[in-house]
Structures are given as C-alpha cells and as structure tokens.
C-alpha cells in the first residue's frame, strides 16, 4: 500500500499544479470598468515619464484612467484611423491636420512643445557644435559623410528630420546614412554604439541612460520646434469611441490645471516639456 500512497501523493501534486494554473488563468484581468480612455501617443512622451506624472493628476480630478499605447506618430495615426484609440497626443502638425481634415479627429489643439536636438559623438567629426543653425549642422554632417542614425519609422521625429534635410536641400543616402526603422530609444542605443549623429527629441534624450560617447551638440534653432497636439478621435467615423471621456482629457490638458501639471514635470531636475496651449 506504500506505492498507493505515493501514487496518490503524485496525483495530488499534479492536480494542485493544475488548479494553480487554472486559477491563474481564470483571473486574467478582464476589461475593467468603462471609466478609461485609450490614448495613442509617442514613445518620447511615454519614455520620459510624463504620463506617469500627469495621468494620476487627471485621474484624481476626473476619476478617468488613461491607458497609453506608446508608438511612433505614424502608427498612432493608424491606430486612430482604425478606431482603436479614443484620443491621440502626437507631434506631427501636418499629419494631425490631415487626420482632422479626413474626419478621423474632431479637432487638433497644441498642448505643449519642446525642441528637437542634434546629438552626436563627443569627437564631433562634422564639427557642428558651434554652427549657426540646424540646417547648417545637417549640411555639415552630410558634407563630411559622418555616420547618421535615422529613425526611419515614420514617427514625428523622423518626419522632422526629413524636413530638416529638405530645408538643407539634401537627399541623404549612402553608407553614412543609416535608416534604422526603430523607436527613439533603440535609435539612440544604436547611435551610441556606432558613434553616429542623430536627431532626437529633448524628452527622450533627457531620460536616456545609455549615452556612452553621445553628447548634445546642437540645440536652440526655432526650426527645431517640436509641437505636441491633442486630437480626440471623432465619433463620426467611429461611434464606439469614448468621445465624452476623451474630450474631458483633451480639455483638461488645455486647462490651467493640465498645463501646470506639464510645466511641473522634470527629468533629473530639468524641464523637458513646456506648456503651449493655444
């Protein structure tokens, strides 16, 4: 009968394990409450920690939670167009206007801004540290064929970078110009790894921890202005969106309270977003 007892023990063990697994499985959080909106936004805002700072304040004021899906701006538009988000917070004015004009967004309002920056290796082979303006800096990088890491992912930052090349009348190509097709973080990781220049947004840079030889080389040109806008997804195209809740988020961002929350946000004691409600 010893064997019987042992077999029984084995069976109980197996059953216990199965029960644990099934319990875990059955408790997968189902969709909770209706008091939330899905916000499609950019990796720069998410990774800087901005949302962790302002969403709790919004939630406190309204009882509404905000679920952030952080993707490139191009993908954020696509998510919005498919009706999978209730609001966008992105940084590509032309794209945002088209999004509203096509009837996917109910309106576009500036919320905040910062500046793009140009980072590069400490040795600065293209010697852009002291140049007059951003276009000049880009020209020098291309002129010296210094390694440049481009997002290449149709994000707001990528679109801004392409705009700069356009202003400099350069069609970047060649082995020095590397299109990564990655988010801001991976692009900075890669740039650090191969001593390349890159266009970045200030918020991502401020919260980036793997700089190695990478330093901030150029900033402060108005052409580098990086405007973030809020666009609620229109219920006309997608009747199921939580438009009422999205509008409250939208208005809160533009309100004094929201603007102040943005102004107070710091990365390592440094402001990286500036309130800019129009």
């Amino acid at each position: 009968m010893v064997t019987r007892v042992r077999t029984l023990a084995g069976r109980i063990q197996l059953r216990a394990l199965l029960v644990v697994i099934i319990t875990l499985a059955l408790t997968v959080p189902a969709q909770t409450g209706d008091r939330y909106i899905t916000l499609a936004s950019t990796t720069s805002t998410e990774q800087s920690g901005l949302f962790a700072h302002i969403i709790p304040r919004f939630r406190e004021a309204t009882g509404i939670d905000v679920r952030v899906v952080a993707v490139g701006t191009g993908q954020a538009f696509s998510i919005g167009r498919r009706g999978d988000a209730d609001a966008l917070l992105v940084h590509d004015p032309a794209g945002e206007e088209a999004f509203v004009a096509d009837g996917y967004g109910s309106e576009r309002r500036d919320v905040m801004y910062n500046y793009f920056i140009i980072v590069g290796p400490r040795t600065d082979p293209a010697d852009i540290a002291g140049v007059e303006n951003a276009v000049d800096a880009m020209s020098r990088i291309a002129g010296t064929r210094s390694a440049f890491a481009s997002r290449g992912d149709d994000s707001g930052t990528h679109r801004a970078e392409l705009r700069l090349w356009g202003l400099a009348d350069i069609q970047p190509s060649g082995s020095w110009y590397r299109e990564l097709g990655s988010g801001m973080g991976p692009t900075l990781n890669t740039a650090a790894g191969m001593d390349a220049y890159a266009v970045a947004d200030r918020a991502s840079w401020a919260s980036f921890r793997n700089r190695q030889n990478l330093v901030l080389l150029f900033e402060g040109d108005d052409v580098l202005l990086n405007k973030y806008a809020s666009v609620p997804v229109s219920p006309r195209r997608h009747p199921h969106v939580r438009h009422e809740l999205a509008l409250r988020w939208h208005r809160w961002l533009l309100s004094d309270q929201g603007q102040q929350a943005i102004a107070e946000f710091r990365v390592d004691g440094q402001a990286v977003f500036f309130p800019g409600a129009d």
Partner: peptide, 24 residues
Amino acid sequence: GGNIDGVTRVMTTAIALETSKGNL
C-alpha cells in the same frame, strides 16, 4: 497589448521598454 502601464505590460515588453530607454 500595447504595453500599457499597469494593464498590458508584461516582462518582455517591459524589458523592451527599458532597453529603448537605454536603461540596460
């Protein structure tokens, strides 16, 4: 899942996120 903080963030997406922040 969208890697939503507190809703759909799992180990692997958290790792991807921290990597892209350079938080190796």
